[in-house]
Write a protein that binds this DNA or RNA. Sequence first.
DNA 1: AATGGGACCTGCGCGC
DNA 2: TGCGCGCAGGTCCCAT
Length: 266
Amino acid sequence: MPELPEVETIKRDLEKIILGKKIIEVRVNNPRVIREPQALKFKQGLEGQTVKNVLRRAKVLILELSSGKSLVIHLKMTGQLVYPGGGDKSRVAFKFSDGKILDFNDQRLFAELRLLNDWRAFKFIRELGPEPFEITPEKFKVMLASKKSKIKSLLLDQTFISGIGNLYAAEVLFRAKINPLRPANSLSDKEKGLLLQQIQEVLKEAIKSGGSSIDDYVRLSGEKGDYVRHHRVYGRQAKPCLVCKTPITRTVVGGRGTFFCSQCQK
DNA sequence: AATGGGACCTGCGCGC
DNA sequence: TGCGCGCAGGTCCCAT
């Protein structure tokens, strides 16, 4: 479940090793992960290209190429980039001019690779809400004002705010002491301010730790992200709240596991 | 219009 | 020991 901090970590690791390098061969081991264009065109469009720029938008990685096209990668839940690669799990392998290989792994085949003429025109990216770090407290208040949906569902809505997933939604709501089931427009101005502050702080700290390795996420090197040590509620069902010792509640919101402290989060 | 649930997938861990 | 089942969650799509 790579979310913003995990994708940002991969982005930073990746640009250190592939900026300016040429892709000499693309091996497609499972065409299902290539959403467009058709696999052969994808391969041909990448071979011979130099990586000019590595960008992140929300949970999406973008590699701008010398041709002007871009390789757009959404890791979804189990997508991984591993370097140096050459492993037998790889769905797609990118070989560079120095002979080294970047593996794209994805156990569950949900991830999406695209070779696009203009990544900015890609519907998913066009419709993304603002990046959490670009939001001011004033703007956040306006954004929440008319929203009746549960605050947790709203944090997961990528067209509302981009980059937060199930894990960080749980963590920021715990730190802001807000119950995930609350209607968004029922938050006081003070709570809205605190929530934005926690969103920015938690994401920033998580990036510093290299993300959270639960399930499949690993850094480019295969090394784990260290932020798991700082988790307070995610995955802690029935365990004592770290603040008040009340057992952590697990419920389902929008079909997703939702962890919170019924005592601390009102 | 907003909300909810299923679908997409695979491997792991659990209970019998 | 072995098998079947539920579960994990990002996003899309459809029904209500």
